[in-house]
Simulated scan of single mutants.
Amino acid sequence: MNGATPTRAGMHGLILPEPVSFWPATPAWYLLFGLVLLLTAWLAWRGWRRWRRNAYRREALAALRGAASPEIAAILKRTALAAWPREQVAALSGADWAAFLRRTAPRAHLAPAEAEALATLAYAPAPPDARGAAARWIRLHDLRA
């Protein structure tokens, strides 16, 4: 070739390497893929469990949408009975029920007047914000309280 530019005919005997594979060849990648798969499965399982555990909340919020005043009180009581043992909830009424509502949902920021209004919904007309306060309690009550 003596310094001349190679021609296509002159490159006839070149052997090209195999194309690079996109699949990793080292065991560390297989381990990483396995760990990512396990982590994804674990997170999906936890999400599914949480979704199932909160089914009573979704059902209560759906029932709350078109509920009248006495029905709101019954929905709150059913929700509490679904979350806590009957011995702790069933006998509560009046000021004790209002205190329970406030104690079990600190993130709902129920004012004492709101909690009292929710506690007397079965016997008195509902204030305008009763449905919103009930929905906040249903969404934000804490089972550890």
Score class of each variant (00 low, 15 high):
residue 1 M to R: 04
residue 2 N to E: 10
residue 2 N to W: 07
residue 2 N to L: 11
residue 5 T to Q: 12
residue 5 T to P: 11
residue 7 T to S: 13
residue 7 T to V: 02
residue 8 R to G: 11
residue 8 R to N: 08
residue 8 R to I: 12
residue 8 R to C: 08
residue 9 A to E: 15
residue 12 H to A: 12
residue 14 L to M: 14
residue 16 L to W: 12
residue 16 L to H: 05
residue 17 P to S: 04
residue 25 A to L: 13
residue 28 A to C: 04
residue 28 A to F: 15
residue 30 Y to K: 12
residue 32 L to T: 10
residue 32 L to M: 11
residue 33 F to W: 12
residue 35 L to N: 03
residue 38 L to I: 06
residue 40 T to P: 01
residue 44 A to E: 05
residue 48 W to C: 02
residue 48 W to N: 03
residue 49 R to K: 15
residue 50 R to C: 07
residue 53 R to P: 00
residue 53 R to G: 12
residue 60 A to T: 13
residue 60 A to E: 13
residue 64 L to S: 09
residue 66 G to C: 07
residue 67 A to P: 13
residue 69 S to L: 07
residue 70 P to E: 05
residue 71 E to W: 04
residue 71 E to Y: 09
residue 72 I to G: 11
residue 72 I to S: 00
residue 74 A to Q: 11
residue 74 A to V: 08
residue 75 I to E: 01
residue 75 I to W: 06
residue 81 L to H: 08
residue 81 L to K: 05
residue 82 A to H: 04
residue 83 A to C: 13
residue 84 W to S: 03
residue 84 W to H: 14
residue 84 W to P: 00
residue 85 P to F: 12
residue 85 P to G: 08
residue 86 R to P: 15
residue 86 R to T: 09
residue 87 E to V: 08
residue 89 V to R: 11
residue 90 A to V: 00
residue 92 L to Q: 06
residue 93 S to F: 03
residue 94 G to D: 02
residue 94 G to L: 01
residue 94 G to I: 11
residue 95 A to Q: 12
residue 96 D to L: 03
residue 97 W to V: 01
residue 98 A to N: 14
residue 101 L to C: 05
residue 104 T to I: 02
residue 106 P to Q: 02
residue 106 P to I: 02
residue 107 R to N: 06
residue 107 R to H: 09
residue 107 R to W: 00
residue 107 R to A: 15
residue 108 A to E: 01
residue 109 H to P: 01
residue 109 H to C: 03
residue 109 H to Q: 04
residue 110 L to E: 01
residue 110 L to D: 11
residue 112 P to H: 04
residue 121 L to A: 00
residue 121 L to Q: 09
residue 125 P to R: 04
residue 125 P to C: 05
residue 127 P to W: 02
residue 129 D to N: 10
residue 133 A to M: 10
residue 133 A to W: 09
residue 135 A to I: 14
residue 135 A to W: 12
residue 136 R to E: 04
residue 139 R to D: 01
residue 139 R to Y: 05
residue 140 L to K: 08
residue 144 R to D: 06
residue 144 R to Y: 07
